[in-house]
Design a binder for these strands. Sequence first.
DNA 1: AAAGTTAGCACCATCGATTGCGCAAAACCC
DNA 2: GGGTTTTGCGCAATCGATGGTGCTAACTTT
Lengths: 349, 349
Amino acid sequence: MTMQGRKATIYDIAKLTGASPSTVSAALSGAWKARRISEQKVELIRRIAAEQGYSTNMQARGLRQAKSGLVGMIIPVHDNRYFASMSQSFEAFARDRDLVPVIASSMRDPMEERRIVETLISYAVDSIFIAGATDPGAITDLCAAANMRHVFVDLPGPGAPSVISDNYLGARMLTQTLLAGVQPRRNPARDRIYFIGGVATDYATARRIEGFRDVLTEAGLPPSPEQIIACGYPPKRAMQEIAALRDRLGDLPAGLFVNSLTAFEGVLGHFVHLPPGSFDRSIIGCYDYDPFAAYLQFPVHMVRQDSHRLIEEAYRLIEDPAPGITVREVEPALIPPRTIYAGPFGEHG
Amino acid sequence: MTMQGRKATIYDIAKLTGASPSTVSAALSGAWKARRISEQKVELIRRIAAEQGYSTNMQARGLRQAKSGLVGMIIPVHDNRYFASMSQSFEAFARDRDLVPVIASSMRDPMEERRIVETLISYAVDSIFIAGATDPGAITDLCAAANMRHVFVDLPGPGAPSVISDNYLGARMLTQTLLAGVQPRRNPARDRIYFIGGVATDYATARRIEGFRDVLTEAGLPPSPEQIIACGYPPKRAMQEIAALRDRLGDLPAGLFVNSLTAFEGVLGHFVHLPPGSFDRSIIGCYDYDPFAAYLQFPVHMVRQDSHRLIEEAYRLIEDPAPGITVREVEPALIPPRTIYAGPFGEHG
DNA sequence: AAAGTTAGCACCATCGATTGCGCAAAACCC
DNA sequence: GGGTTTTGCGCAATCGATGGTGCTAACTTT
């Protein structure tokens, strides 16, 4: 690696090898067979290029080929087990395809989401994966105008293929488990199972509420509106709401369906102040899985969404788009309390 | 947005407005004042460009300007609270600077790490942040050859500025806390505090072991080699090792210094099989923080590394490089058991 | 009114890699 | 040996945005 100021280009290599730039390009890009470059020359060029520490300028290649070798993904936040493991899978599949992943977080802000889509389009990414879209319509419009392939994950969009978790099924499973475990206490209000967290207008939350409601209704215990507290994702709100609920009931409810890990953090923030044993007569479930949450003071039933499969299916849909607009559902799994699950990467879940 | 097949370019806008491409470029890139383009024309161009859904082709701009507007970061894994929150901060700071973050995970594989650095160089990223480098020397070599600014985070590198957590201090604090909390049981072996997890040759682990060792030595209890079990990061190994340890001792040790969240997952995986109450006479600490881990069956003392400050300092070092090679240390904080910490983004920790 | 300024913009080369086309030399064919 | 095919490679245009240079018309100055 002779190091001058600037990076070597195919023109430098051309001079050094006595070949033309186009020959160098072909030799190094792999197109040399089609261009009938002799293997000898290719060897020479490769050797010199390696010596010079040459590497393709992807901006130039991208400009010429009108694509970049990048794949974009938007997630609400990095700092969340569910989305983080989605990132991990997204990257693994990208690597398999020799693509470079660009992952940005929208903080669940529709404006930010649109800005990111525009940015990704500017960079001519191959395709865009949008997880937890807050404004799928706007995204599809932007992408359509730029002729950009995209797929929605976790929350469906009307104008593009989507891969989502079977939230209805997951909610049913979790609710059934809770229902089977409640300990009746003769107090009708306290005997109820409460649903907390999420945004009622979000597709995922709506489906989960449906599942929750249906199971309870089928059991002859149709939930009152008061039982469904969709107070958003931030822990803080959930903490306040659970405190308020406990105030109202005079105790914890018999069952609690927590709709996200972040809401669960908030619930825990409240539980911290309760004496031990406070939870013995309540059964807790959480939609989404965290290995540590699985081993708290009290048993927690969790639903693990298969983010790996979600991403896998999303790549499938992007790569050979079915006619029409597909929505594919992936089944989540119920994880019993005190279970450590090892994910697809061995190290994490 | 009139949608044809292809995206609009400055040439299209030029035709539509009767201006020249260079005028369009100047108008849209903000350089129009310096180029004395009339405000009128700029308005017109802006309007038409918006109508056409124009957006700058960043590959072309990048090629011309020899930079891309991207910043790269390498982390070991996404799916880890510590690194995920680093990603979140990295992205936030990038956004402040109008840069697009590209975050890739190396899976702690030196080869992969180098491949990623080469890729990022190919894309002409502005600078590269490397967290948890496994082969910092090779990275610095690659970057030097390409004249690429880079900074090491979390683990220092010899050839570039580094920002690291004060692992020695953190380990001292945690060890002291554990030491203060051990309940002597008259069995010398069981009364010891054990260190588990991490790789002894890793810089961070080495420093923590130093801190651990020093505190114990100062207390007149110098640790035997057997007390330090640096069995790597994957949960599985930690699970086996803790099981073996318990076999050897006939019980859990009086204190346990767990060196990472992933190792802690493994430890938990073993604890799952123990009867409740097994932990009452042990005191547990973990280097790294997780809100759920903070609220387990038993109290856990945790060390929270300030990933936000780490990244902030790293940007500082990249942006005005001090003469010579700087290593900056950021203090971690001790988080008492049962504490929910709200991070810089409100939603997570 | 001639000379000098300035405003407002267009022209064109350039960044590095790719690719359609063409051309000379070598190899092959009858 | 003349014609045909194949081999091996170079030439030059191209992708879209940028920026140095220059040119014209309007305006100012003396």
